[in-house]
Write a protein that binds this DNA or RNA. Structure first.
Lengths: 264, 264
DNA sequence: AGCATACTCCGTACGCCGCACGGAGTCATA
DNA sequence: TATGACTCCGTGCGGCGTACGGAGTATGCT
């Protein structure tokens, strides 16, 4: 489980944004600070780059989770002193923002997928779903991460796909939000289940086999009738995660489709 | 922002479960440990109770977030030594599980609401949504929290409401999962937006007014055409959170309804 | 009555963490 | 050649969760 301070601190939003959008902004060579592709500055040439740091951090987080990510470990992996990192990145929170955007850079663009808006939107959700599986720590990085350029790119692409529904702009955004929220929520569930596996060393199925009866003793027809019934009829048996993700996705797409063909 | 170690540790699931379900299990007076309502044991009578600790912890987390919650602070608020807490609660992670279940105890049961399955299910989602607003830290407590009795109660009630759809058990559970995931996902978004407000001290609207242009310079028709268009047409103007939550909720319910009236 | 025992309370200490600060070394520029 | 902006990073601070073990206390047994 996971928590990382944030709250309270003013944390210069301005600077975070500039770092996140480095080299994507309007061309202004004068203020090409904290970048890799910038005009030469005075002192010694940097031994590191923001990219390297972000990459190393992602590797650590992939392996040990966001809770296992520390500035000391990143520095160690790169063979530098811990405090050197702060030359490139103002704080850990900003590093996480950069990591999130870097992951989105690897995602493809849904509106280029073959098919209509429904297939394209589904492809978007599925890829997000996959990214969440591959980088569980993304789910633990709560708190408004200022939007980065690559995240924006994928969002833009999703909107482009949805545009084919012909729905008003306002609903396009709402529809994208539904799908995004849903995907994230389901990914959290899936991650939790995988985490349980890791913790106990057994598969979820095996865990239920062992501890299910004990929990079952608590779920009787009297205490939790609906859960009991579902349980009895095998509704909780691991019909794997992907299937139930897909079920919900299709329901949401159905709902959106209803708005297209329906009134309006 | 927020991270809390967990991972790796075996963390006696058995004991956690017994603590979480204390007084809800089958009657077994012999092993009434770590409870408040148990047979008298030997040593000095406990000065605290699990309930008190959980309550104090919730108050702190409500005020300062999960990142601001520390065992030291809980102890201080209760006027005891830090380590005394460990007499009642094996670790912070377990305390968080207890907190989550305690919050669900305050939630009402959707299947008792007036109306059909659609109204009841919507009521469930709206109340979860409210609980998430009131206790943002719930959203930061990722990782499989072993299911507590009160969480189970509300889930059972939701299943009961959905049962009126007549869908097969398997789909009832899937439908409940969709709604639950969606609600959580949207709550995260809303929390992020509120957090931004708190961080900058201005309302989100004011923040956009000030920094929007600068961000707008990055979002041109060329770079992010769909976002640009949506932006221009005011689709991002704060049509408040509740409305967009409600929009998605109705879409999902539409999708589920389609399964009821459709084939099958 | 008296003692063993099981229990609560909690001070101390350890090993982590993020990061403020300031000194030392490096190099483009004036 | 001297300046001063820049990188690198050792040290140290205040916080964290919690292991350990000792001291005090109430119960149950003889």
């Amino acid at each position: 489980m996971i928590v990382m301070r944030d709250e309270e601190g003013p944390r210069d939003l301005e600077r975070s944004m500039r770092l996140l959008w480095r080299a994507h902004g309007e061309p202004d060579p004068a203020e090409a600070t904290e970048s890799g592709a910038a005009v030469r500055r005075r002192g010694p040439k940097p031994a590191l780059s923001v990219e390297q740091i972000v990459l190393a951090a992602i590797e650590i987080a992939d392996a040990e989770g966001l809770g296992g990510l520390s500035m000391r470990k990143v520095a160690e992996r790169l063979g530098v002193g811990t405090m050197s990192l702060y030359t490139y990145v103002p704080a850990k929170a900003e590093l996480v923002s950069l990591m999130l955007d870097a992951v989105d850079a690897r995602g493809s663009l849904p509106h280029t997928v073959e098919g209509g808006w429904r297939e394209q939107t589904a492809a978007w959700a599925r890829e997000d779903w996959l990214l969440y599986q591959r980088h569980e720590w993304m789910l633990q990085a709560s708190g408004r991460q200022p939007l980065g350029p690559n995240t924006m790119r994928r969002f833009d692409s999703a909107l482009r796909a949805l545009r084919e529904t012909g729905l008003p702009q306002h609903e396009l955004v709402a529809a994208a939000d539904v799908i995004d929220s849903y995907t994230r929520g389901m990914a959290v569930r899936a991650a939790e289940s995988r985490q349980l596996e890791r913790r106990t060393g057994t598969s979820e199925q095996a865990w239920w086999d062992e501890h299910g009866p004990q929990l079952g003793a608590r779920i009787s027809e009297a205490t939790y009738p609906a859960v009991y019934l579902a349980w009895q009829s095998g509704a909780f048996d691991s019909d794997n995660d992907i299937d139930s993700f897909e079920y919900g996705l299709q329901r949401i797409l159905d709902g959106i489709e209803g708005r297209v063909t329906g009134e309006d």
